[in-house]
Structures are given as structure tokens and as C-alpha cells.
Design a binder for these strands. Structure first.
Length: 425
RNA sequence: GUGAUCGUAGCUCAGUUGGUUAGAGCGCCUGUCUGUGGCACAGGAGGUCGGGGGUUCAAUUCCCCUCGGUCACCCCA
């Protein structure tokens, strides 16, 4: 906010993850990892930057590569970019290493897009994602979508809707684009001015315009369904059948085209109905049967999705689910003598697997026990002059004021604490 | 990139037609309680009023520029 001399702040669209939120962040990452690995997906980590060519395969005309990429030349003049999304890099990795198929992987980490920030949108944002490469089986589409569904349920979200569409193969996509272009040209004057320029370059993009004049026109546009060939229809039908069998509710949305050029056949989006903001897509993905080939590999089908962690947590806030986990501190060591007992006892407890903490700077008894209380610890160990003399420790249970404080021998403290915490082995 | 809106203590905000030492609540620290926590009371620390320039005898208050936050378009997670 302020910019005083010699002070700095996070760059536009970035933020610090602070202790108040970081435990929740770690927890949601953990949830995703366990849901994904339960379905046979393994973690893959790719670099945060790559040769820019990897990402330009997303589509030269897309906003993501055209104007939102953080690109730079390194000291050896290599043209690089900070990754703007996950799928292209995973496909590059597949081509580079040629693992056996189906290759089922998940990933998570920061992504970068040079955009003006707003609700649910950042320049550095974070995604989970999965990719399943090497199979054209529609049941894999179902597995991928179901995994997204399972994650959303696991963090407690209820108000989400799944939108589903099929783009057909590369050929139908081309045919549909042309006929859509023809249709839109006839109605150019009825379109919102802002959208007219997209008719030639990106007719598909006109479909998801939010402008009402344009929406009135596109409501009459030919649906892509009419252009699907027999195989595409069969594939799409089988996907729907699978979702029905798994009791995953969905809505067919013929205008769901998505902004990345590589999609073929199944495309889908999970939207949060609890989010008031303009960006309510929590998870989006689809099939990309031509991308691997584009990146120099053998023709190989693939499907996956990306899930925005910030948006997922925003949706959790809106539904009041997935709260910040309780602090982990179990024991607070209070030392009102010279602090050496606190120094030694915290180390002893910690090396015995107990979450222990203490106050510093020789604070008063009152101050230390207040810190102990606020830490969320269940137990306070108290050392004063008397305890030092007698080699004992007073134990106070912080969560139940009715219990009497007890005194134990100093050498028994670890086993006593473990017992009181219910950890006794 | 375009548009709207905002910018006063760590946080949430007051601040009178521009007028002398800029306030509150919460939080933090200390004390009432010379060894005992969630309450109460008292005290304390903490602000170049985002930054720069201008108008004026005087600017947190008016004007310009700039930086940043928020929201929307575009697009997407």
C-alpha cells in the first residue's frame, strides 16, 4: 500500500502466504495429493520456466500466450517464459521421457500470467492439476472428471456445477469454426461492438462473451453438436453415461469452448455457485488429442484439468468449509527463572516428537501463561525457583481449568507429557 | 491494455466550509495479581495522514502527477 523510501512490497498481483493461512494451504495441498494418488496418479514437478516454444503450442492466438506471458531472454539469449499453465509442460515432459502409457500424473505449484488482478485472479497463482496421457478411452475422461469432483467434495464444497461439452476432433472444430464465422458475419451488426473484431480471428471466443447483445445472437447460433461425427458422438455419449453411473450431476453447455486452442472432444468446467465474483471457475479442463504431436511426439491422446487453489479456497470461504486447521503446539514451557530450563526442556520434548514452544526475554509468569493459552497448547510446564531446587516440574492442563496442577519429577517429564497427551506407547 | 473506485497507527475505520500537540475500537506490551491464562480496569508503545509537486499565511482536507489496493471488461485457474 504505502511506498515509503527504502521499503518494498509484493509485486502487483502477488501476495505473501502468511502463518494465518498457510496451515490451511498446506492442508488443501495434502488433500489434493491424497485424492490424486488414491486414483493412481503420481506427482510430477516441472520447471517454473521453459523454452517459450513449449507454451506457444497452446495457441498463438490465445490471450494466454499472446499477451499474458512473462517472457524473458536469459544471459545466453535463450527465449524463455514463466509457465502460464500446466498441461503444455507435462506434455513436453512426456515427449522428452517417453514413459509407458497410460501416464497418470498430478502436479501443483505456481503459475504466472501478466494480467490485471481482480477477485480470484492473480499474476502469480497456484494450481493443482492432473493429466492422463496415452488413452482415448472415454472412461478415462470420466475418471479425470470424477477426480476433480472428489477433490471438491473432499474440501466440503457443495455448491458446484459441472458444465460439459464436446468439441469433436480437430476437423469438426475447424468446420464448426467456419460455419460459426459465417453465421456471425450475417449478424455482425447485432453483435456488441467489442466482439465484432473476434468474428474473423476467434469465432469460438464470441460464444462465451458476457455482453448481452452478443448473447442474444449466439443463442441462435448453430450448436456444435450438429457437427460431431459418429465417433465423437459415441465418445461423448459414453462420458455422459459414466458420469450418470457415478452420480455426478452435470449440465451440457454447448457454448463451453474454453480459451486454450488445444482442446478436442470433452471439455468441462466446475463452477462455484457460492462465488459472487466474475471468476467462478474453480476447475477447468478437457481432452487434447493433438497437443503431444504438436510438441514433436507421437500422436498420443491426453486429457486433464487445472484447478485454481486460490479460487478453491475462496469458494471454501463462501461456503464456510475447510477452515484453517488448529495450531499444532501441544506443550508450552514456562520458565520464570533464568530460561535455561525452558531452553533444555523444549529441545528434549521436540526430539521426542512433541510440538513444544516457549516464551523468551524473561517475561512475567502472567505473560508466559497468556502466551501458552493463546498458542492453543494443551499443557503448560511451569518451572520456578521451587521446581529448580527440587528438580521437579509443575504441569498445568490449559484446556480444563478445573484440573489440579500436578508436580512431577523432572526426569519423568517426557513420559508424563506423552501420557497426558494420550500418546503413551 | 481499458474503465470505475479507494489509499489516515499492525488491522477496521473516524477526522468538522483547509487552521495550532491527528483520534477510536481491536491487536500488542506493562501493571492491578511481588509464581498462574480466556473477563474487567489503568497505563504504554506505535503515524513524515501512500509518494512527489502545486495552490495558500496555513493542506490529512483543494488541484496535478505517480505508486499501490479493490472491482469490472477482456480472458482464464
Amino acid at each position: 500500500m504505502s511506498k515509503k523510501a527504502n521499503t518494498f512490497q509484493t509485486p502487483i498481483g502477488t501476495r505473501d502466504l502468511l502463518p494465518g493461512e498457510s496451515a490451511r494451504w498446506e492442508a488443501v495441498v495434502e488433500v489434493f495429493g491424497s485424492v490424486a494418488s488414491r486414483s493412481g496418479f503420481a506427482l510430477v514437478d516441472t520447471p517454473l520456466f521453459e523454452d517459450i516454444g513449449v507454451f506457444s503450442r497452446i495457441g498463438e492466438g490465445t490471450d494466454v500466450v499472446g499477451k499474458e506471458m512473462y517472457e524473458f531472454h536469459d544471459r545466453s539469449d535463450r527465449h524463455m517464459a514463466l509457465r502460464p499453465e500446466g498441461t503444455a509442460a507435462i506434455c513436453r515432459s512426456f515427449v522428452q521421457h517417453r514413459p509407458p502409457v497410460p501416464w497418470k500424473v498430478y502436479y501443483r505449484g505456481p503459475y504466472f500470467r501478466y494480467e490485471a488482478p481482480q477477485a480470484g485472479r492473480f499474476r502469480q497463482f497456484h494450481q493443482f492439476g492432473i493429466e492422463s496421457i496415452g488413452s482415448d478411452d472415454p472412461d478415462i475422461d470420466v475418471e479425470v472428471i470424477a477426480l476433480g469432483w472428489n477433490v471438491l467434495r473432499s474440501v466440503g464444497l457443495k455448491e458446484v456445477t459441472l458444465l460439459l461439452n464436446s468439441m469433436g476432433n480437430a476437423n469438426t472444430r475447424k468446420q464448426y469454426q467456419q460455419s460459426l464465422r459465417d453465421f456471425l458475419e450475417e449478424h455482425t451488426l447485432d453483435l456488441d461492438e467489442e466482439d465484432r473484431s473476434k468474428v474473423q480471428s476467434h469465432p469460438l471466443r464470441v460464444l462465451d462473451s458476457k455482453r448481452s447483445a452478443t448473447q442474444r445472437v449466439t443463442a441462435e447460433a448453430p450448436p456444435i453438436e450438429e457437427f460431431l461425427d459418429g465417433d465423437a458422438k459415441a465418445h461423448f455419449g459414453r462420458v455422459q453415461e459414466g458420469l450418470n453411473a457415478l452420480n455426478i450431476p452435470f449440465t451440457i453447455e454447448p457454448k463451453l469452448v474454453r480459451g486454450l486452442d488445444y482442446y478436442t472432444h470433452t471439455t468441462f468446467e466446475f463452477q462455484s455457485q457460492a462465488l459472487e465474483s466474475a471468476q467462478n471457475t474453480v476447475c477447468g479442463g478437457g481432452r487434447y488429442n493433438g497437443l503431444i504431436e504438436e510438441l514433436g511426439g507421437p500422436a498420443t491422446p491426453g486429457i486433464g484439468f487445472g484447478m485454481g487453489i486460490e479460487r478453491l479456497l475462496l469458494a471454501c470461504d463462501a461456503e464456510e468449509s475447510f477452515p484453517n486447521p488448529a495450531p499444532k503446539t501441544q506443550v508450552w514451557v514456562i520458565d520464570v527463572t533464568d530460561g535455561s530450563s525452558a531452553r533444555d526442556l523444549t529441545q528434549l520434548l521436540r526430539t521426542n516428537g512433541i510440538f513444544a514452544d516457549r516464551s523468551f526475554d524473561g517475561r512475567s509468569m502472567r505473560s508466559q501463561i497468556r502466551s501458552a493459552d493463546r498458542s492453543g497448547a494443551q499443557i503448560a510446564l511451569i518451572i520456578g525457583e521451587q521446581e529448580v531446587e527440587e528438580a521437579t516440574i509443575s504441569i498445568r492442563m490449559l484446556r480444563d481449568r478445573a484440573t489440579e496442577q500436578i508436580v512431577v519429577q523432572r526426569e519423568d517429564v517426557v513420559s508424563q507429557v506423552r501420557q497426558l497427551l494420550g500418546l503413551e506407547s
